[in-house]
Design a protein around this nucleic acid. Sequence first.
DNA 1: CTGTCAAGAGGAAACGTTTACTTGACTTGT
DNA 2: ACAAGTCAAGTAAACGTTTCCTCTTGACAG
Lengths: 331, 331
Amino acid sequence: MKQVAAVAGVSLATVSRVVNGGPSVRPDLAARVRDAVDLLGYRHNHTASSLRRADRLSASIGLIFEDVANPFFSAVHRGVEDVARGRGVLTLAGSSDELPERERELAESLTARRVDGLIIAPAATDHSYLQRDRAAGLALVFVDRPASFIDADVVLTDNAGGAREAVSHLIAHGHKRIAFLGDRPELHTATERLRGYRDALARHGIREEVMLIRSGHDRPYDLVEELLRLDDPPTALFTSQNLITIAAVHAIHDLRLQRKVAHVGFDDVALADVVEPGLTVMAQDPRALGRSAAELLFSRLDGYDGPSRRIVLPTTLIERGSGELAPGGRR
Amino acid sequence: MKQVAAVAGVSLATVSRVVNGGPSVRPDLAARVRDAVDLLGYRHNHTASSLRRADRLSASIGLIFEDVANPFFSAVHRGVEDVARGRGVLTLAGSSDELPERERELAESLTARRVDGLIIAPAATDHSYLQRDRAAGLALVFVDRPASFIDADVVLTDNAGGAREAVSHLIAHGHKRIAFLGDRPELHTATERLRGYRDALARHGIREEVMLIRSGHDRPYDLVEELLRLDDPPTALFTSQNLITIAAVHAIHDLRLQRKVAHVGFDDVALADVVEPGLTVMAQDPRALGRSAAELLFSRLDGYDGPSRRIVLPTTLIERGSGELAPGGRR
DNA sequence: CTGTCAAGAGGAAACGTTTACTTGACTTGT
DNA sequence: ACAAGTCAAGTAAACGTTTCCTCTTGACAG
């Protein structure tokens, strides 16, 4: 920049004004500066700039997910990017692999780079360590799961409602023995979906059976096999997470029961409509999740200073066949 | 930091030394500094630090993909992250949506933030604009597709070889009328896979048929339908991209031809083994692609200054049934 | 003419760090 | 006991910008 100033024969201040589209600089000078910029191949240094600038904004936000390669989270990522792009804001993403420690490291790494905000799908159980950064102006939004020990904006899927609707759908098709296969119970989404399942049963006067409620199994495939080989097996399955759903589809097909046992999954998966019968799912909208989270974040950066908000996005039932089988396998 | 120094009763330099694990500082002073840090909730400012530091490294790298939400690229992303994490390096990712202009904007945004390196799955046809940044020390690696008009490290999948092998596999099962469905021909991967297809036919003395070679159709589903309704339809399909593969599976199933027409896809997709028959694919290893790219990048940052390297990763044939059907549909 | 004002430009301080250089107190070898 | 060397700590300059403040110039009103 100094060189540019020298070549253009102006002061540093003027170069800065031109580079930032500053208000009052004579057209001929501006042109000279621009020529010098091109000539020297000057590249603006955004980090140095934001160090001194009044707003102190880095125009970048951090994302912390379980795994950036999980289709669910990469869709959230994209949703965030969609709205960040409009503001010239870049996204830094990292995978926590569901490890609280790793999540914290990432958060610290990101705040050390002075990101303007953080969007987190929380793994850690305690987020109070972010309190200080927030006091220092960091915008904070949680997505997919609420945070603990810190009061912040959050955007969620209607897990309980979606699960309730999914299970009610099975009940409407005549099922009474419906198994619940869930993720590890320490996950908020898992317990919420279980709550929805219970709710649906209760509303229809169906008694829960302990044998049919299974959470946090590490080999879902085996679990499904076991369930379907019971003396009195469930007539329908509700799988409450995408990887479990996929494992269940495998198991059901391997046992050749795909026309006998009904199945609804939470969260949509690719090729769900090519499987025979098509897989009925309660779909989420991860991209919208990301967009909403980003909007909450930017509203904070734009000065909103009210109480924290909680957005809950609805789910959509997609009927493809597997969820519409009657008990015993008739359609 | 000034406050920390004041509270601990030491100079700024000493605080800096402690914060950076500097070599020679008396233990009691170091302890006092650390106490002050905790007390004040001091957060290191990495950007200010890298501005002055000798290495001038931001410990972050930029990623530019077509779409961070595409499972292929999100897996590459994760591969990069795997190796970056080991070095405490963060990844900034952006989606170009295959628009050269958007790619360039992203690249400029990233270099303005002084990332140490850039990993790009190129959309643009001319990357010479990066020449200057590279001269200034930016490490540069291209992934999935080679760059144009700039000589840089690149890591690719063996597109031609994989396609050749896939098509040979179909030929080995007795097929002679094999259709090729490809992506837009301006994409490097698309032309390479077509080359592999042609190669396989030539090696086995099969004449190409123009009618059976289709590239860059925007409605692959309709295209497959059209092909299969020809008077003399192909007995096998080779779909050379994941989205096209999925569309083809849909079309084949809708026409109830899944046991009549053989099908091999390039790039693996979820649930491919639950479809009936299972979908045979030539799988890539996108995560390894990302890891290799990151390794090339870091070797540059570690001082490697030799000629640019080109890594080509092999593909793996996964036989699941659809590729092993004989012409006419017998197994 | 003088005085007021606005616009345009420059000088220098500041942002939060690191680091080259300096200082001072010890240690060591003779 | 003294020169030389070592080590720990401090001072101040520097990194690449932006911004506050001042200065000059010219226009215009009284």
